[in-house]
């Protein structure tokens, strides 16, 4: 087990995880648990829980976590670099082509077709998160407070134009404080 193997492992995770987020999890599991035995399945489950509770992309979180677990800080740096290197190369190539040909009618057409698709995918992610917040991950409970927080947040962001990060923080503090104060299940 070497730093280089760790680098290669996260290079593959970075290169083959399309669609982001949860789509990368099976790939990370295969590389880290099944192929390399760097983590047990229960450690991997902990990793998922923590990755979901902390900000940032799951692949980058996993790289840091696994890297530190194996080699300390230098492991974390190597794994993170491996994980983002494919992104840098691929995005640089696509970005170059985009800047060079964006006035070409065919590429303009392709992008015009992609823009509505992007909006649709963002909407789909938003609805999924809303449903999980209100009905729970199993969609079998109902949380009226989540709807209230949602409406307040929407009001302050869309109408009052309050900074969204401030809205996020206040929702966490006020909403979370309310759940604790009322002794509601968390």
């Amino acid at each position: 087990m070497t730093l280089f193997a760790l680098f290669l492992c996260f290079l593959q995770i970075g290169a083959f995880s399309f669609g982001g987020g949860l789509a990368a999890l099976p790939l990370i599991q295969q590389q880290v648990v099944t192929l390399n035995n760097w983590m047990s399945m229960s450690e991997f489950t902990d990793l998922i829980a923590i990755a979901e509770m902390t900000p940032g992309p799951i692949a980058v979180n996993s790289a840091t976590f696994v890297g530190i677990h194996l080699f300390g800080i230098k492991g974390a740096i190597v794994a993170t670099l491996g994980c983002i290197l494919p992104s840098i190369l691929f995005v640089a190539a696509l970005g170059f082509l985009y800047n060079k040909y964006k006035k070409h009618y065919l590429l303009e057409g392709v992008l015009a077709g992609l823009r509505p698709a992007v909006v649709a995918m963002i909407l789909s992610a938003g609805i999924s998160i809303f449903l999980i917040a209100v009905f729970g991950t199993e969609l079998n409970s109902f949380n009226i407070y989540a709807i209230i927080i949602f409406l307040c947040a929407l009001y302050f962001m869309a109408i009052k134009k309050v900074n969204p990060i401030l809205v996020l923080l206040l929702s966490g503090i006020i909403g979370g404080g309310f759940y604790i104060f009322m002794g509601l299940p968390i």
Binding site: I149, A153, V167, L168, S171, G172
Partner: peptide
Amino acid sequence: KENVYVGAFLKGMQPAIAAIIISVV
């Protein structure tokens, strides 16, 4: 992972995350 305050904070924030995405979309 088991800290109740962290859990409550995240649970309180979740609907606001949905609100951000939906207001932009």
